[in-house]
């Protein structure tokens, strides 16, 4: 279990998302979403029945729906609350994304915890 540098906080667009990538993997490990009240990080693993663990981005760093109010899985369209990770629409209503711990240091650099190591 170890902390990894993602980027500077200013490199994450407000109402935008950035993928968390491990060097040796083709899919993002997770992603962060910046809102006016904080930054939220989730594993890039949809809980969709039969598709558990599938990547959710539709394009590099793109994890949100049209009005940027929800995380959207680009496999089958489920919406998730940005702050709680709760699925709020079909096909993942009532299911949850797995959180990733974040910390921001004194220089504004955002670090994420890989608890799978």
């Amino acid at each position: 279990m170890s902390w990894h540098l993602l980027c500077h906080i200013d490199e994450i667009p407000l109402d935008g998302s950035v993928g968390i990538k491990l060097a040796e993997q083709s899919k993002d490990y997770g992603f962060v979403v910046k809102k006016y009240d904080g930054i939220f990080a989730w594993r890039n693993a949809c809980p969709h029945l039969g598709y558990q663990g599938t990547s959710m981005a539709w394009k590099r760093n793109q994890y949100l729906n049209g009005d940027k109010q929800y995380i959207m899985c680009a496999a089958h369209g489920a919406r998730f609350e940005i702050r709680t990770g709760e699925g709020v629409t079909s096909p993942c209503q009532g299911m949850y994304l797995k959180p990733i711990a974040l910390k921001t240091d004194d220089h504004g650099n955002v670090h994420w915890l890989n608890d799978q190591e």
Binding site: S55, M56, A57, W58, K59, Q62, M72, C73, A74, A75, H76, G77, A78
Partner: peptide, 8 residues
């Protein structure tokens, strides 16, 4: 591919 339409 994934897509913004919410389908593959």
């Amino acid at each position: 591919f994934n897509s913004p339409l919410g389908v593959h």
